[in-house]
Design a binder for these strands. Structure first.
Length: 580
RNA sequence: GUGCCCGUAGCUCAACCGGAUAGAGCACCAGCCUUCUAAGCUGGGGGUUACAGGUUCGAUCCCUGUCGGGCACGCCA
């Protein structure tokens, strides 16, 4: 019981129970469900296995539970086992065994909470992947916070994680950005430019145009009259109008078009990268959509679909028969004009992901893309790939509220709240925390006033405050955490202390659940509980008491709490301040 | 109209994937600072889990229907 490495009490009990079960009811395939009861009177762990099992065996559930308990091998960690209700089995852990977690947390430090759940499997998490056509907004922020926290949780649970950002650098949206930049540039040279309403309106486009002018003067100036010649009406055919302008820009600028395109791309991508880095969100890979065309993977992927007999021609376009895989309708992969669709490059991208040998692929998308899932999964199956390796996690929109009112956002007019503005207003910690405080597939009401309030109303401070309080106690004590290795933790027996010990032991399980369910919000809720129990303890007991044994035992406990608070906050990308 | 998601305290949300008396925060009421940080703590009122059926030992969770909300239904990305 003095092992310095992690010991999994829950796993131990689960094995014990499974053994007993195999003797009492051989061959039963009921999973051993072990949970932490809400009520302390129901023990530290409880199982209801006897209930579903009883029926199949034609036995009385309570009597069956009794037989299971009788068949349990003795355990040094168990104080007693009780039967309750219709057939629940309640396990009570010996107090000193409950507190053993304190020693573990102190000796393992930031490694406490990790598990081998992932067994080193390679998992890719692709998230944000915003079009590099303008600043990231608050919607991207949620995907960023969720993805980064999820990746951290998966890594802590023993997965080998690759964090990836898919760069849409090949499509029409980028052409529109390049065109917008060029038109703004022409306007800087005193041409009267009718700037299209469906081009990018933001001030950052003008800023890029200024940069180009400053660096290259008039080099990219062309006669505007030739741009608008024969253009479809902007009023009645806005999209065709835009496409015409793009084509004109390409033809007038020639090789110079590539420069403008790449300049805008590099600027916006760099801006997103900086923004995310400041938000504590970093990537192992930035994967270019354009590279899929350069390496001919798009062609190859589509050809493969054709070889497998899943393509047909209609109206001059090439269609993928996704309805054969449960999609609502078939989808175009190559347009009548010979251009591949976004879907085609996405098929190629996923083929590439599979070819890179990930055991598991997690795509994080905005919830508005949910209709896109069946066709991607269908394409994977059509390529002969195991579609179950792919999980798509949908992130719902975040709606901002200020003074109780919805903050209106519209991409069209360029009046949306950027991630940068949000971070400046509420701070990185509050933003990261608020974003993951909700299940990702739930709508999020983001209360700006609450997030930036420096008061007890703000949950992120509540947790950070617990950490700072502990840091302050340790500072006043003056000793080091290493001096607490042999603290007499068996003295810790008050209800506050038992509750904290049990809560600490739950941390590795929580991280593992969060990884399994792709639900980092579980960590946030766990931290709130832990902080609450610590604050109660803090108000009920003095830590720096004169009796050394008691002092050390209590310091060891709150030291362990500090370890877990810091660890959990770091998984969520939130800082753990020493002082507040 | 069709498909997917959602509906839990006045508000914002949890609930260990079918378990025991559905929990937190905010708001409201009453208390606690000459002692380690009051950004804290203690106590209190608040619920037919949208509604109606069904499945079973047991349902917020699974099934059907109704009502209400969100999203998606392009040779856009």
């Amino acid at each position: 019981m003095t092992s310095s490495h992690s010991f999994d009490l829950k796993g131990h009990l689960a094995r014990l129970l499974a053994d007993a079960l195999s003797r009492v009811a051989p061959g039963s395939d009921v999973g051993v469900a072990l949970e932490r009861p809400k009520l302390a009177s129901h023990g530290d762990f409880a199982s209801s296995v006897a209930l579903p099992l009883a029926k199949g065996l034609g036995r009385n559930p309570r009597e069956l539970a009794e037989a299971i308990v009788a068949a349990l091998a003795p355990s040094p960690y168990l104080e007693r086992v009780e039967l309750a209700g219709p057939g629940f089995i309640n396990f009570f852990i010996r107090p000193d065994a409950v507190m053993e977690v304190v020693r573990q947390a102190l000796s393992l430090g930031s490694r406490f909470g990790r598990s081998a759940l992932g067994a080193g499997q390679k998992v890719q998490v692709e998230f944000v992947s915003a079009n590099p056509t303008g600043p990231l907004h608050v919607g991207h922020g949620r995907g960023a916070a969720f993805g980064a926290s999820l990746a951290n949780v998966l890594a802590a649970a023993g997965f080998e994680v690759t964090r990836e950002f898919y760069v849409n650098d090949a499509g029409r949206q980028m052409d529109i950005l390049a065109l917008s930049t060029w038109l703004r540039y022409l306007a800087l040279h005193d041409f009267a430019i009718p700037f299209p309403a469906n081009a990018y309106q933001g001030g950052y486009v003008i800023a890029m145009a200024r940069q180009i002018q400053a660096a290259h003067g008039t080099r990219y100036v062309r006669e505007p009259a030739r741009v608008w010649a024969d253009a479809p009406s902007a009023a009645t055919e806005p999209e065709a109008h835009l496409d015409h302008l793009i084509a004109a820009a390409k033809s007038l600028l020639g090789a110079d078009y590539a420069y403008l395109h790449d300049f805008a791309l590099t600027e916006q991508l760099g801006d997103a990268r900086d923004d995310l880095a400041q938000f504590g969100v970093t990537f192992d890979a930035w994967f270019s959509e354009k590279s899929l065309f350069d390496s001919r993977l798009v062609e190859r992927a589509v050809a493969l679909l054709g070889q497998n007999g899943h393509l047909y021609l209609q109206d001059g376009a090439q269609w993928f028969r996704s309805t054969a895989f449960g999609d609502e309708k078939d989808r175009v992969v190559r347009r009548e004009n010979g251009q591949y669709t976004y879907f085609a490059s996405d098929i190629a991208y996923h083929l590439n992901k599979y070819e890179r040998g990930f055991d598991r692929i997690i795509d994080i998308w905005g919830a508005d893309h949910h209709g896109y899932i069946p066709r991607v999964r269908g394409a994977l199956q059509a390529l002969g790939l195991d579609a179950d390796k792919l999980t798509v996690a949908l992130v719902q929109f975040a709606v901002l509220y200020r003074e109780g009112k919805k903050v209106s956002m519209s991409t069209r007019s360029g009046e949306f709240v950027t991630l940068r503005e949000l971070r400046a207003e509420v701070g990185n910690d509050a933003a990261r925390f608020f974003y993951v405080l909700r299940k990702s597939d739930q709508h999020l009401d983001f209360d700006l006033d609450l997030a930036k309030s420096q008061s007890n109303e703000n949950p992120v401070y509540y947790i950070q405050y617990a950490h700072a309080r502990i840091a302050s106690v340790f500072e006043q004590w003056g000793g080091a955490i290493e001096d607490l290795g042999d603290a007499p933790i068996e003295r810790l027996a008050s209800p506050y202390e038992r509750a904290l010990g049990a809560r600490l032991a739950q941390y590795p399980e929580t991280v593992a659940s969060a990884a399994k369910e792709l639900a980092p919000h579980l960590v946030a809720y766990y931290l709130k509980e832990l902080a609450a129990e610590f604050h109660s303890y803090y108000n009920a007991e003095q830590f720096l008491v004169s009796d050394e044994a008691t002092r050390h035992a209590r310091l060891a406990l709150i030291g362990a709490v500090r370890v877990v608070l810091a660890s959990g906050l770091s998984l969520l990308g939130v800082s753990a301040p020493q002082k507040m």
